[in-house]
Design a protein around this nucleic acid. Structure first.
Lengths: 224, 224
DNA sequence: CCGTCAATCCAACATTCCATAAAATACTGG
DNA sequence: CCAGTATTTTATGGAATGTTGGATTGACGG
């Protein structure tokens, strides 16, 4: 093992990292973890896998150095080990976007149908937020919002959207975001609210990218 | 398949891309392809694999959209499908660098021992090159140099280094580069030339990154 | 048309990986 | 220290992947 050519060793290590992200469940787990740290049970529930299965995947990723774990009482909380992991999945996404006809098909068929407008960039949102021109809408579930969100955003989970329309000012322009570039929540929100006459657009990516870029965030109560 | 949740489909596609790079041989093939297009036979030789095996890996990567192939007579030439692939392997490398103790060990043991100085960045090299302050040294094999190199660089393959020392001006500062960040060639060159009293440093990455950044390159004869 | 060479296809085998269930471990609160 | 909950470990079957050698295809040069 250690007598090999250094190049071989490095490539083997890089391949190990790639293997650790080379599974749909694991990518979905990473998307969840990008929102904030989570226990195994919650994660398993979110990705519709058994607890054992989720635990396996998480440990695999931990061995590869993608995620880190922290024990607190009975619970083990996993989190991303490093923001470089976000760059990695973003790079993965970009390659797939430019090269996979299947990705193109899905994007056209599902996403473009719900929002044909250009998304708003992070810097653009930051400027307009400071100028008080827009309402920022976080459509993720309340627990994810609580773990951290764009400073000044209001939380209105997609499932409660119709029930709480009154919370929204229909005169202000709205910028919606959720977990990341292809998170379905913000697309749905945009489609539904636009049908009701709201002026709404999407942020190009989601909360994890906003936070990783060093832009202002806030968390709800500092509870567990 | 196509009735699934769009998110599932996308994650499955992203995972397919990740799988396509999740093997040491494939990463090595990609490093070779980043220098320029190559036939299957040559590639197999470079990564010390059988032709059949190399062909399999290349086809796997082609299906995933990482590489493209072109037939010319009896030969099939493979090349990178997109510069986004370079970003992907760079992201892989960065994650491994920050998280893998094994990578750290190898880097310290092998690379840091040969060159402790800070490498030169691309923009820094560009400036000093224009000012005529430095000699740029390409230590890759002649055939790779011929496929494309930093404009103005001189080629002195590592194997011929000692034999052709006279080609180098010992007063000028030298910047050496090769295939990429952890390519052993430039490290070796730096170690050997510095021992002989040359003022030499390394470029932080290699030819593929230079070209992808849109900086000036040139190719030898437009042969093949 | 035949022989040759590059590359791919095919079949077989070993290896690794994934999902599930059952057992073991870690921690908490009595 | 016991009961209960959360997580990890272990074992197992089945699917997918990697490697190899031999057969096949496609292109070239007589």
């Amino acid at each position: 093992m250690s007598t090999e050519n250094p190049k071989q060793i490095l490539f083997t290590q890089f391949a190990a990292v790639a293997k650790a992200v080379a599974h749909p469940h694991r990518l979905e787990l990473l998307e969840q973890l990008a929102q904030g740290e989570r226990s195994v049970e919650v994660l398993a529930d979110r990705v519709r896998a058994t607890v054992t299965n989720a635990s396996q995947h998480l440990q695999h990723m931990r061995r590869a150095g993608l995620v880190a774990a922290r024990r607190s009482g009975k619970f083990v909380f996993y989190r991303l080990a490093d923001d470089a992991v976000l760059d990695l999945v973003a790079a993965l996404r970009r390659v797939a976007e430019t090269q996979s006809a299947e990705v193109d098909r899905v994007v056209r068929g599902y996403f473009d149908q719900r929002d044909t407008l250009e998304p708003v960039t992070r810097t653009e949102l930051m400027e307009r937020l400071q100028a008080g021109l827009v309402t920022v809408l976080d459509v993720r579930p309340a627990d994810e919002f609580a773990l951290g969100h764009v400073a000044g955003a209001i939380n209105l989970p997609l499932v409660e959207l119709e029930r709480r329309l009154a919370d929204l000012d229909s005169k202000h322009e709205i910028i919606a975001y959720c977990r990341g570039p292809y998170c379905v929540l913000s697309y749905e929100a945009v489609a539904r609210l636009r049908a009701r006459g709201f002026r709404i657009r999407r942020l190009e990516d989601g909360y994890p990218e906003w936070r990783a870029a060093g832009l202002p965030v806030e968390a709800a109560s500092p509870s567990a």
